[in-house]
Computed example of a mutant assay.
Amino acid sequence: MPGYYIYTLDNDGHVQGRVNAICEDDEQAKRYAEQLVDGHVLELWQEARKIAEFKPHKLSQ
Rank of each mutant, 00 (worst) to 15 (best):
I6P: 00
I6A: 00
I6L: 03
Y7P: 05
Y7T: 06
Y7R: 06
Y7A: 04
T8R: 10
T8G: 05
L9D: 05
D10C: 03
D10T: 05
D10N: 14
N11C: 07
N11H: 10
N11W: 13
G13R: 02
H14A: 11
H14S: 11
H14Q: 07
H14K: 12
V15H: 11
V15C: 13
V15M: 15
Q16M: 15
Q16T: 10
Q16D: 12
Q16A: 12
G17W: 03
G17N: 09
R18I: 15
R18H: 12
R18G: 09
R18A: 10
V19H: 08
V19C: 06
N20G: 11
A21T: 08
A21M: 11
I22D: 05
D25P: 02
D25L: 01
D25H: 04
D26W: 00
D26V: 06
D26M: 06
E27W: 10
Q28H: 12
Q28E: 10
A29F: 02
A29V: 04
A29L: 01
A29Q: 01
K30T: 06
K30P: 02
K30S: 02
K30Y: 06
R31Q: 13
R31C: 05
Y32C: 02
A33Q: 01
A33H: 01
A33C: 01
E34S: 15
E34W: 05
E34V: 08
E34F: 02
E34C: 03
Q35T: 11
Q35S: 08
Q35P: 04
Q35D: 10
L36K: 01
V37N: 02
V37K: 00
V37R: 00
V37T: 05
V37E: 02
D38K: 08
G39A: 03
G39W: 02
H40R: 08
V41L: 04
L42W: 01
E43Y: 13
E43G: 03
E43C: 04
L44I: 07
W45N: 03
W45I: 10
W45S: 03
W45P: 01
Q46S: 09
Q46R: 14
E47Y: 13
E47G: 15
E47R: 07
E47F: 10
E47D: 15
A48T: 14
A48R: 07
A48N: 12
A48V: 09
R49W: 14
R49C: 07
K50N: 14
K50W: 13
I51L: 05
I51M: 04
A52T: 04
A52D: 08
K55E: 13
P56K: 01
K58P: 06
K58C: 07
K58G: 07
K58M: 07
K58S: 12
L59Q: 08
L59S: 09
S60G: 07
S60L: 10
